[in-house]
Computed example of a mutant assay.
Amino acid sequence: MSAPTTGRLRVPGACLHYEVRGRGPLLLLIPGGTGGAAAFDGVADALAAEYTVASYDPRGLSRSPLDAPEPGRSVAEQSVAEHAEDALRLLDLLSPAEPARIFGSSSGAIAALHLLTARPERLVRLVAHEPPVVEVLPDAPVHRALLARVRDTLDAEGLVPAMGVFAAGLKKEGEADGNGQAPATPGPELPPAELPPAAAARAARTMADLPYFLGRIVPGFMAYSPDLGRLEAVSDRLVLAGGADSRGELPYRTAAFLADRFGSELLHFPGGHTGLTTHPAGFGEVLGQAFRK
C-alpha cells in the first residue's frame, strides 16, 4: 500500500483530514460508520491506477475534529445536508472544473445521495452501497421505534448495550435473540496489543468514535428522507448496491427498495455490509467495473 498525500480542509465548524492517491479524473470515496479514510486502504491503490482517488474522515470523526462548542453547549446532532456540503467542498477543491465519480458506503452513501439531488451537475456517477435511508421503507415506523430504543438505551445504560440494540435492529428478521440483542460475533484474531501499529491505531480511532457516531450521526442520518422525485430524475447517474451476504438486512433492504423504485438493477459487492473491509480485493474490482460502464 502506497502512502497517500494528506491534506487539511477548513470547513464551517470543522477541519477535514483528507487523503489523495493516483492521477486522472477524481473519484471521491465517502466512508460510513467510524471507518474514516482508512476504510479504503484495501481498495484505494488499485483504483488509483485509473483515478485521482480521494478519501476523508467525515467531520467529528477520527482526524477531522469539530470546532469546540460554545460554552454551555454540547455537540449538535449531525446533519446529512452539512456532511454533503463537506463532500462538495472537497470536490470543489480537488476537481473544480470537472464533475467527479463518487462512492459512498452506509451513512456516507446517505450524504452522497443528498449531494446527487442537490448538485447533480457535480457528479458523473454515484455508487451508493447500502444507504440505510429507512424512511423510504413501508415499515418505516418500526425503524423509528428502533432509533428511539437506541437513544434511550444509550442514555440509560451506555454505549455497549446501545450498540447491541442498534446491531440487532440492522439484522435479518429472526436473527436477534429474545432480548433484542444481536448474536455475538467473533472478535479479532489478534488482541489489540498484537495488531500491527497502523491497524492498532485504526482500531483505537474506531472505538473512540463510536459514542459520537451512535449518538450524533445515526439519529439524523437514519431519520433522513431523500427527495425521491429529484433522485429518480437523476437516477441515470446512480448505481445502488448491496452486499451479496447481507440480503434481508436493513441497509440492504433500502438499497433494493430504491433500485426497484427506479427500475434499475441492484449491483452486488462481495461480503456483507462491511464487505469493503472483509473482501477488499473483490470489492475494489467490482467498484472499478461500476465506474467503467
Score class of each variant (00 low, 15 high):
Ala162Val: 02
Leu258Asn: 01
Arg205Gln: 05
Glu85Asp: 14
Pro120Phe: 15
His129Gly: 04
Pro141Asn: 08
Ala290Val: 00
Gly72Lys: 15
Phe221His: 01
Asp86Arg: 15
Ala54Arg: 04
Gly22Gln: 01
Tyr18Met: 14
Leu228Tyr: 05
Ala290Asn: 06
Pro197Cys: 08
Gly180Ala: 01
Gln289Thr: 02
Arg202His: 11
Gly215Glu: 12
Pro226Lys: 02
Gly242Ile: 02
Gly271Ile: 04
Pro65Arg: 10
Tyr51Phe: 07
Ala49Lys: 07
Arg10Gln: 00
Leu90Met: 10
Leu267Tyr: 01
Glu82Gln: 11
Lys172Gly: 14
Ala256His: 05
Arg216Val: 13
Thr34Leu: 00
Pro99Asn: 01
Gly36Glu: 03
Leu250Asn: 01
Ser79Arg: 13
Gly180Cys: 01
Arg125Pro: 14
Thr5Trp: 13
Ala145Glu: 13
Ser235Cys: 09
Val134Gly: 03
Arg202Ile: 11
Ala200Ile: 02
Asp209Ser: 02
Glu285Thr: 15
Leu228Ala: 02
Tyr252Trp: 15
Ala49Gln: 08
Asn179Ile: 05
His129Met: 10
Ala109Asp: 05
Pro96Trp: 13
Leu195Arg: 12
Leu266Arg: 05
Glu189Cys: 12
Asp260Tyr: 09
Leu276Pro: 15
Tyr252Pro: 12
His129Asp: 08
Arg237Tyr: 07
Arg202Ser: 09
Thr254His: 02
Ala182Tyr: 08
His279Leu: 03
Pro226Ser: 05
Leu266Pro: 08
Pro138Tyr: 03
Arg125Met: 14
Ala203Ile: 09
Ala68Pro: 09
Phe291Arg: 01
Glu249Asp: 05
Ser64Ala: 10
Ala255Gln: 03
Ala200Thr: 03
Ala200Lys: 15
Ala37Tyr: 07
Arg59Asp: 00
Pro141Phe: 10
Pro219Leu: 13
Pro131Ser: 14
Asp177Gln: 10
Leu210Trp: 00
Thr5Cys: 01
Phe257His: 04
Asp177Phe: 03
Tyr56Lys: 12
Gly229Pro: 00
His273Lys: 05
Gly32Arg: 11
Arg23Leu: 12
Ala193Cys: 06
Arg21Ile: 15
Lys172Pro: 01
Ile217Asp: 03
Ala290Glu: 03
Val234Ser: 06
Arg122Val: 03
Arg23Phe: 11
His17Asp: 08
Met222Gly: 07
Met207Trp: 10
Asp177Trp: 01
Ser264Cys: 11
Gly272Lys: 07
Ala128Gln: 06
Gly215Ile: 00
Leu238Arg: 10
Ala140Met: 11
Ala201Asn: 03
Val286Thr: 14
Gly242Ser: 07
Thr34Trp: 05
Val239Phe: 02
Ser62Cys: 11
Leu228Arg: 13
Gly104Trp: 02
Leu170Pro: 00
Ser105Cys: 09
Pro31Ala: 10
Phe262Leu: 03
Val142Lys: 10
Gly242His: 11
Thr206Asp: 13
Ala208Glu: 10
Arg10Ile: 00
Gly288Glu: 04
Leu154Lys: 00
Gly272Ala: 05
Gly13Met: 09
His83Ser: 12
Thr277Asn: 15
Pro280Met: 09
Gly288Cys: 04
Leu214Arg: 15
Val75Leu: 09
Val124His: 14
Glu249Leu: 08
Arg237Asp: 15
